[in-house]
């Protein structure tokens, strides 16, 4: 067996081994008492960011609710790979209705719990970026506006991966998808205005909005726990790389997620009642090329016919995020 050094700290992150922490500071996932809400045996791809994100998020929500949780799922990868009839990975009561109605179904579940006086039972709804930022957006906004007692989690892998990698409103500019092919003078996805759903959620003034990545799992657990400590409509968008859609190696999921944050492409922050209350700082700012180059969906920006001007536009987006949310530890860095 090859020699493997034991690492207590992973360079460049705040990650710390659980063994160095006091028991009450350890992560939910490190506990033998974790609920394994989404159990092994499901059919996600190797290196699936969504499966990892869902496991951490729902286990954290289960821990926070003392096991009194009902999950609602939008149609999508998570739904398909977790419940191929007659099997189910879910160890929590779980319902899937449609692609675009998970927030409304969750509202219904929460209403039922309220009317039955079972308010200890908490409700989580979850979906991918397509189910959240596109087809489910109307229901999501309605659920926010009414401040229904639902935590909605969006697993954002920036395209419709389940149907074969088509563009969603969360797909970044220039990215290759099956409907934004890398051909013509401006290959890949268009530079639109973007659709920043965390900020749109904040504009509803809901109690809690946060973003997170699967590279910062303690931060993710903290945000789910924090969200679960509140009532009303809450929203967490988790960046979950998709090896298939991004064109990345299965073992690079965490690295890509970390680079998304460290470049500023995916700002990680939290907000209460519409005001940003905290950001996950970038300790060492990384140029966007480092994030883009390992991903085949951006391959057309490099290589024989590079598009440095497009890369520069993406860098400008990252820089704007960094400025806007104050993501750098020191502005002079």
């Amino acid at each position: 067996m090859p020699y493997q050094p034991v690492k207590f700290y992973q360079t460049g992150t705040f990650t710390v081994g659980n063994r160095l922490l006091a028991p009450d500071e350890r992560s939910v996932q490190s506990s033998r008492m974790r609920s394994n809400s989404i159990n092994s045996g499901h059919r996600a791809c190797q290196g699936c960011g969504e499966a990892l994100g869902a496991r951490y998020a729902i286990d954290a929500a289960m821990a926070a609710s003392d096991g009194q949780l009902i999950a609602v799922n939008a149609t999508g990868c998570l739904e398909v790979f977790s419940t191929p009839y007659p099997e189910s990975s879910w160890q929590v009561p779980w319902i899937h209705s449609l692609f675009g109605n998970a927030p409304a179904v969750a509202t219904g579940v929460a209403a039922a719990m309220k009317v039955k006086g079972r308010q200890e039972v908490r409700v989580v709804a979850q979906g991918g970026d397509g189910g959240t930022t596109d087809i489910g957006f109307g229901c999501l906004s309605g659920m926010f506006e009414r401040n229904d007692d639902v935590l909605y989690i969006c697993y954002d892998n920036e395209a419709y991966m389940n149907t074969g990698v088509q563009r969603s409103s969360a797909t970044p500019p220039a990215a290759r998808t099956a409907t934004t092919m890398p051909v013509g003078p401006e290959p890949g996805n268009v530079f639109g205005q973007g659709k920043n759903v965390p900020e749109i959620a904040m504009a509803h003034g809901i109690p809690y909005v946060a973003t997170a990545t699967v590279a910062d799992l303690r931060d993710l657990e903290y945000k789910v726990r924090k969200a679960m400590s509140m009532h009303g409509a809450r929203y967490i968008q988790i960046f979950v790389p998709c090896p298939l859609g991004f064109g990345t190696a299965s073992h690079d999921t965490i690295r890509i997620a970390r680079l998304a944050r460290e470049t500023g492409m995916f700002p990680v922050f939290e907000a209460e009642h519409g005001e940003v209350t905290g950001v996950l700082k970038i300790r060492h700012k990384v140029a966007v090329e480092e994030y883009l180059q390992p991903q085949k969906r951006f391959a057309h920006l490099f290589g024989k016919h590079p598009h440095p001007e497009t890369v520069a536009r993406l860098q400008a987006i990252a820089d704007r995020n960094i400025r806007k949310y104050g993501l750098l530890e020191k502005e002079s860095d």
């Binding site: 109605n101 509202t107 009317v115 039955k116 109307g138 309605g142 506006e145 009414r146």
Partner: peptide, 21 residues
């Protein structure tokens, strides 16, 4: 519940009915 569309109306009813109401 005053919902934002009929699609939501039926969806809320799906959730509440599945939760036993």
């Amino acid at each position: 519940i005053n919902v934002e569309s009929e699609f939501a109306a039926m969806s809320v009813a799906i959730g509440s009915s599945a939760a036993g109401a």
